[in-house]
């Protein structure tokens, strides 16, 4: 079976790859492009560990085919920091001890950023519902929610 040629943009870089017709975007990112920040926790869109954005829209990359991102702009956790400068979300999750094992962290960060891009001032309830698709088994979510709220306040220019 011949592979499909795909041209896309990933974290601002032009990228080309060949994928099998049934190969997920997650497998392409991880197995072909060396972008292993997105994790496969379930493969069925239930855990959010593979979260990325495609043209600004938050998706589970395990539910997107590699062939579908032709001509799109994909962002992953690897594109979040600006060189050595961490994004405020990354910094506040670290300072707030909002990760224990860290496997869900990339997905949580990508999802939280997608929310703040749309809504810079979410309520705790809005944030909790937005992140309901990102399973974390370690933290009980408390420190994740607090850290994202603190980062959002900082990004809005509020003093903490």
């Amino acid at each position: 079976m011949s592979k499909i040629h795909v041209s896309t943009e990933i974290n601002g870089d032009q990228v080309e790859f060949l994928c099998e017709t049934d190969e997920t975007l997650l497998d392409v990112l991880r197995d072909q492009l060396g972008l292993t920040g997105a994790k496969e926790g379930c493969g069925t869109g239930d855990c959010g560990a593979c979260s990325v954005t495609v043209d600004g829209r938050l998706v589970c990359s395990c539910l997107v085919l590699g062939a579908e991102v032709e001509g799109s702009a994909v962002t992953t956790i690897e594109g979040m920091a600006d060189g050595d400068a961490l994004h405020p979300l990354q910094r506040h999750l670290l300072e707030g001890a909002a990760l224990q094992c860290g496997i869900c962290t990339p997905g949580v960060l990508v999802a939280a950023k997608a929310l703040l891009d749309k809504n810079p001032d979410p309520s705790e309830e809005e944030l909790r519902y937005w992140l309901a698709g990102n399973l974390c088994r370690c933290t009980g979510y408390d420190k994740i929610i607090r850290s994202v709220m603190t980062a959002a306040a900082e990004m809005r220019g509020e003093k903490s």
Binding site: R30, K39, E40, A81, L86, L93, E95, T105
Partner: peptide, 17 residues
């Protein structure tokens, strides 16, 4: 801040898979 933290918020930490 934990010593393995930056790798884990930037997607660089290497897990089993």
């Amino acid at each position: 801040v934990r010593p393995d933290g930056v790798e884990k918020v930037t997607g660089k930490a290497l897990f089993g898979a």
